[in-house]
Every structure is written in structure tokens, then in C-alpha cells.
Design a protein around this nucleic acid. Structure first.
Length: 485
RNA sequence: GGUAGGAUGGUCUAGAUUGGUAAGAUUUUUGCUUCGGGAGUAAAGGAUCCAGGGUUCAAAUCCCUGUCCUGCCA
């Protein structure tokens, strides 16, 4: 069987694994564990995602940088919390040829300690600020056995932007801009519904003052952590000596923010969320091929149909200039198999043309989201396809929009939390504190309920609780609890 | 960490109880017939059966060691 053998909502894990193999997205047989080659179909989409993300960052004042992949251990050791958080997961380069290196080199797990070393040389005065840069590339983290293609790997693909400001206020504004960027990209371009939480102290980026992370709302009631933006304050600028001369000729340390959308993980979230029992479904702009034309003929009608199909292809290419169109004229594959194959790969629009259509001066069009088939006259095709193209992603977003409030269940006790999580809800509760003194309560939730405290909402919160759901002390915060991937 | 399985053509699996010519499906290549929702047929190609050692006339199969994978429990 070439199609996916299970239904998405019956066995998600199996569905996802088969989708990746059968739609030729990635090949898990590479002989280093946790490192995965992405095949052409996934690579094309991932490159498109990079492009739209990079354009957006540049529009908002960031410039690109290309940075080395290796970071000397001495840089890496400069910020204590950062080291503590990352060193168990660093791949180290220890040898050059046969010779042991004098200093170990880290394969970057993130680039703060490479960049800020250079920022301290590049930034001289307040005239250089704000200083906004981004790096696109791979990072390496030695994860445990629990890897899953696109979601968690030992090498993954991301963009990290690192911005330096003269004041804390400007840095805070940047964090807000990063969150807006995330909504623009994930919700508008990639059709993934998200919500931002401020992470509790015990769960923030190592070295950050605050971490704000987007959680994607998956239809199973689970959440998946997507891009996060971090207010680093002066935690890195002091050890790395990122200083500038202000208007009064005084030396000041900069305020830094960093933002890291992991493109490979967003891709995973997108295919997992948007896909259906027939396979992949992709937003219009991100599909490697947007329109596939399938000729249908018998031996007697072959030449005539193929000729008309080629004419159709030429016409489509003329009036859909930004679109990738493919005529699937393979003779050795039956139409039925082509239908299934292109559905598996998530081509948004299929156009069929056969003898009956030629006679009636029409084509048959099939919608990847609804599966609906209809006939369209050739004279109307130009209008039809242009409105189809502009509506496709909107339809997809509508189908997967999740009303956050409708997923939420309020809970006053740990038992209520447990019950609601069991019903695939996201739980809203009172909590003593999201500072370090609240960690023991979070650990209890983790242990008893097998769900995680995601933090407090960044946008306005309308629920208020008297007491912490765990310890019963006065609730300083309203927080959300969910299971996560 | 505990525990139970597993590793055989590109892929999935049989073969193990009872040691004896490595099997099937699928994939790939080619020919002919097909083609409006996963085509049929004929042929060809493809595995030192995870690694190393032992028992034996003979090992995919039995024994030992190692490596890697998977499930379940903490």
C-alpha cells in the first residue's frame, strides 16, 4: 500500500511516521542517530519558509549574518546559567586530524556566545544602536533517545535573531515585535494557531531574564512549543563586554534580546496539524507544486488528450506566473495512482482533462482540502484558478482555527486538573508563583498529571483565582497547564 | 535505571520449535495490453541473514560476547 494505512485521529504516531516516508519528506535511515536528511519535497517547502521569514525580519530592520558553526569552549563558558543549561547537550570537537586540540570547540547549540563576542567589537557608540542581526542555519544539540523527525532532532534548522538596544524599554518593545512577527508568520503564512505564554522562571532559556514562548494548539488538546523570544537584559552584555558610548560619553552595557524560530520544527507542526487521512495538506504558497494537471486517456485518445493537456499547461503558466504547475504525463502510472500520489504530497489544486472534457470545453478540478470535484469551463478557468489560489490558504486557516477559550477548562484542585487534562483540555488555574518558589508545585503537577505548566498568558488575562491549585497559598498568577509534544 | 522482545534483498515480513539449496510480497528495470480514484501480464535485477567468537560433517537457525533498534514499567 502506498497510501497511509491508519487514520490520523486513531493513531497519530503511526500516521506521522508513514506520512514522512510515503510523501518522501525525510529519510530516517541515515546512519547517525538523530541526524536526518530532508528529501526534496520537504526541502523545497522549508526553503520557502526560510525565505518568507527572512524577508519579514529584514523588513523589520534586521540584517543577515553568516556565522561560524564552531564556538571555542572559553566563549561558551562566559555566562554561568547558559553553560549550565546547555553543556549536557553540546557536541564537542576535540581533534583536528590526529592531533588533540588545545581548546575544545562546541558545535553551536545556539549562537549567543559566538555572536556577542563579535558584537563587542562591532558596537562602539549609541549611533550603532539598535543593532539588529539574524543568522539562518543549523544548530546541534545532543538530545536523548526521544527524537522525532522535524520535531526534535540532534541537528535542527532555524533562524536566530539577536538585537542590542540602548535601553531596557526598547528591548522589551523588541520582544513584543518578535511576538507579532510570530503571529504573522505562523498564523497568517503557515496556518498554525498559536498562543504566547511567559514561561515560569524554572523553564526559561538559560541566561534569560524572561522567556516568552509560542505554543501551537494541536487538535489533540496537546500543545507544541514553537518560536520563543527572550529578554536577555544585560546578562550576556556584561560577560561579553557588549558596551557602547552614550550621548554623554559614558560607557553603558547594551540590552539584548534573542528570538529563535526553528523552521524545521514549524514545518513538523504544520504537516502534523494540517495533514489529513490522505496525507499532506500545505498552504498554497508553501507547496512545492501548486497545480498538477492529469491527462486521462485511452490508447485511441492518447495523442489528442496529451496535446490538449500541454496546451492547458502552457495557458496556465501564462496566467499564473508565480505558480508552479506540473503536467503529470507519465504513461506508466494510472490516473488513480496519480490522484492518490499528489494528494499524499499535498498539491493544493488538481486539474483533470480527458476526452469528455475536451468535448465539453471544460476541465475537472479537485480541491485538496474538501476533496470536492467540479467541472469548470475553459473560458472561466483563469478566473477560477486565481480566486482558488487566493482563497486556498484562507480556507485552510478557517478549517484549523482553534478557539483557545473553547479548549480551556478552569480547575480549582489537582483532581480537577487531572480530569480536564484527561479530556484533552488545556487547564487554567491559580498558581502561587511563577518565580522559582513555585517550582515544587509545578513538579507535583508534572508528576501527578503528566502535564506541564506553560506559564501565564502574554495578552490580557480575564480569569482570576484566589488560591494556588496545588499548595493552596494565595495565587499570585493565573497559569495554563497542558500536555505537550 | 528495570524488564521483555527484535536485527534476513531498496522496503516489509516468513524461515527458528525440528540445524541441511535463503522464501514471499513490494520496490526497481524492460516488453505487451491498459488508463474518469491505488491496472494486468511476462521476464530481469537485487541479501557474506547486525558484528565477532564457539559447537557441528553442516548454522539465518543452537551457545557466548558486543553493538544497535523497539515496546512496556520507573
Amino acid at each position: 500500500m502506498k497510501g497511509i494505512s491508519v487514520k490520523k485521529n486513531e493513531d497519530f504516531s503511526q500516521w506521522y511516521t508513514e506520512l514522512i516516508q510515503k510523501a518522501e519528506l525525510a529519510d530516517i535511515r541515515y546512519n547517525v542517530r538523530g541526524l536526518v536528511p530532508y528529501r526534496a519535497w520537504a526541502s523545497i517547502t522549508i526553503r520557502k519558509m526560510y525565505r518568507v521569514y527572512e524577508e519579514t525580519l529584514e523588513r523589520k530592520g534586521h540584517l543577515p549574518l553568516i556565522m561560524p558553526t564552531l564556538i571555542p569552549e572559553s566563549n561558551f563558558m562566559l555566562e554561568a546559567k547558559h553553560v549550565e543549561g546547555f553543556s549536557p547537550r553540546v557536541f564537542w570537537v576535540t581533534h583536528g586530524g590526529d592531533k588533540e586540540l588545545e581548546e575544545r570547540l562546541a558545535l553551536r547549540p545556539t549562537s549567543e556566545t559566538a555572536l556577542y563576542q563579535m558584537y563587542s567589537l562591532w558596537i562602539r557608540s549609541y549611533n550603532d544602536l539598535p543593532f539588529k542581526r539574524y543568522v539562518s542555519g543549523q544548530v546541534f544539540r545532543y538530545e536523548g533517545a526521544d527524537t522525532r523527525v522535524f520535531f526534535r532532532a540532534r541537528e535542527f534548522h532555524w533562524i536566530e535573531s539577536h538585537d542590542v538596544f540602548a535601553t531596557e524599554e526598547e528591548a522589551k518593545q523588541q520582544v513584543i515585535e518578535d511576538m507579532e512577527t510570530t503571529y504573522e508568520m505562523l498564523q497568517d503564512e503557515f496556518a498554525i494557531p498559536i498562543i504566547f505564554f511567559q514561561r515560569p522562571e524554572w523553564d526559561k532559556f538559560p541566561g534569560a531574564v524572561h522567556t516568552y514562548a509560542a505554543d501551537a494548539l494541536m487538535d489533540s488538546g496537546k500543545v507544541l512549543q514553537l518560536p520563543s523570544t527572550h529578554l536577555l537584559g544585560q546578562n550576556f552584555s556584561i560577560p561579553f563586554d557588549v558596551k557602547f558610548i552614550d550621548e554623554n560619553n559614558d560607557e553603558q552595557y547594551g540590552y539584548i534580546t534573542c528570538y529563535g524560530p526553528a523552521i524545521s520544527r514549524i514545518y513538523g507542526a504544520m504537516i502534523a496539524l494540517l495533514g489529513d487521512d490522505n496525507g499532506l495538506v500545505l498552504p498554497w504558497d508553501l507547496a512545492p507544486i501548486q497545480v498538477v494537471v492529469i491527462p486521462i486517456y485511452r490508447s485511441a485518445t492518447k495523442d489528442e488528450v496529451l496535446e490538449k493537456a500541454r496546451e492547458l499547461e502552457t495557458a496556465l503558466k501564462k496566467y499564473m506566473k508565480e505558480t508552479t504547475i506540473k503536467l503529470d504525463d507519465r504513461d506508466y502510472v494510472s490516473p488513480g495512482e496519480k490522484f492518490n500520489e499528489w494528494e499524499l504530497k499535498g498539491v493544493p489544486l488538481r486539474i483533470e482533462i480527458g476526452p469528455k472534457d475536451i468535448q465539453n470545453e471544460q476541465v475537472v478540478v479537485v480541491n485538496r482540502i474538501s476533496g470536492n470535484k467540479e467541472s469548470v469551463k475553459l473560458v472561466d478557468l483563469k478566473n477560477y484558478t486565481s480566486s482558488y489560489a487566493s482563497n486556498f490558504t484562507k480556507e485552510l486557516k478557517k478549517k484549523h482555527s482553534i478557539q483557545f477559550e473553547a479548549q480551556v477548562q478552569l480547575a480549582q484542585t489537582v483532581d480537577e486538573v487531572k480530569k480536564a487534562i484527561g479530556e484533552n483540555k488545556i487547564v487554567c488555574s491559580g498558581f502561587c508563583s511563577i518565580d522559582l518558589d513555585g517550582e515544587s508545585c509545578a513538579e507535583l503537577i508534572e508528576k501527578e498529571v503528566k502535564a506541564f505548566v506553560r506559564g501565564k498568558r502574554v495578552d490580557t488575562e480575564k480569569h482570576k483565582f484566589e488560591k494556588c491549585v496545588v499548595c493552596g497559598k494565595p495565587a499570585k498568577e493565573t497559569i495554563y497547564i497542558a500536555r505537550s509534544y
